[in-house]
């Protein structure tokens, strides 16, 4: 089971790093994309936690469509934070 633990910690740090980058960066587009990446990474953690239904849904809705909606909205407004 040690390999699962290692994967989980790697995913954990990836998720936290991309969430931190999403908060930190001034570029809203990359913030939205790194939020999507965090979501995708978390969906891999759902798989590790034996939740395939949730993993599929999170990957398609949480990561895919949410990010698309954000990107459309950024295209209609502005890209840079002050």
């Amino acid at each position: 089971m040690i390999e699962f633990t290692i994967i989980a910690w790697v995913m954990s740090f990836l998720a936290i790093a991309s969430a931190l980058y999403a908060i930190k960066t001034k570029d809203l587009l990359s913030a939205a994309i790194s939020m999507g990446i965090a979501s995708l990474v978390v969906s891999i953690m759902f798989l590790l936690l034996q939740a395939p239904d949730v993993a599929i849904t999170e990957a398609s809705i949480g990561a895919g469509l949410t990010m698309a909606v954000f990107i459309y909205a950024i295209g209609k407004t502005e890209r840079w934070e002050e």
Binding site: A8, M11, A15, A19, L49
Partner: peptide, 13 residues
Amino acid sequence: GVIMASYFTVASL
């Protein structure tokens, strides 16, 4: 370990 990692992720996120 998996549980610990994911709880850590939850609290941080």
